[in-house]
């Protein structure tokens, strides 16, 4: 697995994300989502997004991840090769599990956002003792 050569991933542009009025590109970040017994984990790849540029919302089971890119080129440069373009990131998911909204954790490191959405502990099965008369 570790010997695998990496392939480039084409950035997908967001289709029909409302009606944008700014002439900006919006991309769908690539994600890994995996679930453990305690939490739902989301890894989202958003190169160029700083810690302050991330917005996460959870509303009515819809999780929205937004990343705003700070411009990383300064003026007066002539472009010789362009393989990626700066653009903002947007992706929405439906979260089926009941999430403890208070305990959501997000960390941003090297352009990858890690989200931990802890599940609410399910109601424990209760035994009801039948009382004799």
């Amino acid at each position: 697995m570790t010997e695998k050569e990496m392939q480039i991933q084409q950035k997908q542009e967001v289709q029909q994300a409302g009606e944008p009025t700014k002439p900006e590109k919006q991309y769908v970040p690539a994600v890994d989502i995996f679930e453990t017994a305690e939490a739902v984990n989301v890894l989202a790849e958003m190169p160029g997004v700083a810690k302050d540029g991330v917005e996460i919302e959870l509303e009515n089971e819809t999780l929205t991840i937004r990343g705003t890119v700070a411009p990383h080129e300064h003026g007066g440069e002539t472009v010789l090769l362009r393989e990626f373009e700066p653009g903002n990131y947007l992706r929405k998911f439906t979260v089926a599990e009941t999430i403890d909204q208070e305990k959501i954790q997000a960390t941003m490191a090297d352009g990858v956002l890690t989200l931990v959405l802890p599940k609410i502990a399910p109601a424990k099965p209760r035994r009801i003792a039948v009382q004799g008369i």
């Binding site: 990496m6 690539a30 994600v31 995996f34 679930e35």
Partner: peptide
């Protein structure tokens, strides 16, 4: 193995 994946989109490996 114990994780159940919903999406696997990130690539990894050597480059």
């Amino acid at each position: 193995e114990k994780y159940s994946y919903h999406r696997r989109e990130l690539e990894c490996g050597r480059f």
